[in-house]
Amino acid sequence: MHMSRFADDTALIVVDLQPDFMPGGALACFDGDAIVPAIARLLERRDYGTVVATQDWHPRAHASFAAQHAGRAPFEVIDLHGAPQTLWPEHCVQGTPGAALDARVDWTPADLILRKGTGVQVDSYSAFRENHGPNGARPRTGLAGWLRERGIAEVHVCGLARDVCVLWTAQDAQAEGFRVRFLWDLTRPVAPDGDAPTRQALAQAGIGLG
């Protein structure tokens, strides 16, 4: 029987490792495919007793898509439900090939596949909470409770994108009371200029790099 490398109270969260975030995809992250082999090996080695994979899974008319806002272009920022919202190219539309989990990874070890961004009116960067919704609050996904019921005290985060969904997941994990390790080398940003603010945010939060 294979023994996990990490303690039973430690989980791995693989964020949005999907073709639309890879080079050539609808919302390509810089060098996004470079992390796939290492993440595949990590899952293959069964280093973690608990593995969560998140999957961006948007309705076609999602409010975060620039195409849903007349006269707006991708990467513009608007006010949505009282909070800043970056407008994105259409990406990870439910049931499309670009929304699938990356086929180069054997996802068998994943205990939970968490689909996020499924509501048409609210975006969802973090695995733990959606972005601000129509009532001004950030609804919970239920992941924190699921992890706690499995005895998880520490989470390690990796995936895409380093400066958006992985960062928000790490910050929210810490806010939920988990110890957090940010696996920097197993993440990539939307664009390289996102790295300095991400490092600053992690340092301010006291989140360690793995």
Rank of each mutant, 00 (worst) to 15 (best):
P59E: 06
Y125L: 15
W168E: 10
D163H: 13
A28E: 14
Q204R: 15
S64E: 03
L17F: 05
T54R: 07
P23N: 15
V51P: 00
W57C: 05
T141L: 13
L12F: 03
R188F: 09
T54E: 08
V120H: 04
A100D: 14
Q200W: 01
D111I: 00
A173F: 04
F30C: 13
G208L: 13
L143H: 14
T118R: 12
A40S: 10
Q204E: 15
G71F: 06
E154G: 04
V157P: 06
P84I: 14
L12H: 02
R41V: 06
R188I: 11
L143S: 09
R181M: 08
G177A: 09
G133I: 08
F21D: 05
L209Q: 13
T141S: 15
G98M: 07
D123H: 10
R46A: 14
H58L: 04
G133N: 12
S124L: 05
N131K: 07
L43Y: 01
D106A: 05
D16I: 15
G142C: 10
R129M: 00
H2Y: 04
D47G: 03
P37Y: 05
W88V: 05
I78R: 08
D123L: 10
D47R: 02
R115P: 01
M1K: 10
L43W: 02
Q18E: 12
R140G: 01
I13E: 03
T198C: 07
G151Q: 07
H62G: 02
D20W: 08
P74N: 07
A53H: 04
G208P: 00
V51T: 01
H2A: 08
P192M: 09
G208H: 07
T118V: 13
V122K: 02
A161H: 09
V52G: 04
A11L: 05
T118S: 05
P109Q: 03
F65N: 03
P197C: 13
Q171A: 07
R5Q: 12
A170Q: 09
C158E: 06
H132S: 07
L167T: 10
D8V: 04
D106M: 03
V105L: 01
W168S: 11
R129S: 00
L101Y: 01
L27I: 09
V122M: 02
G25M: 12
S124G: 14
G210K: 08
G136E: 04
W184T: 14
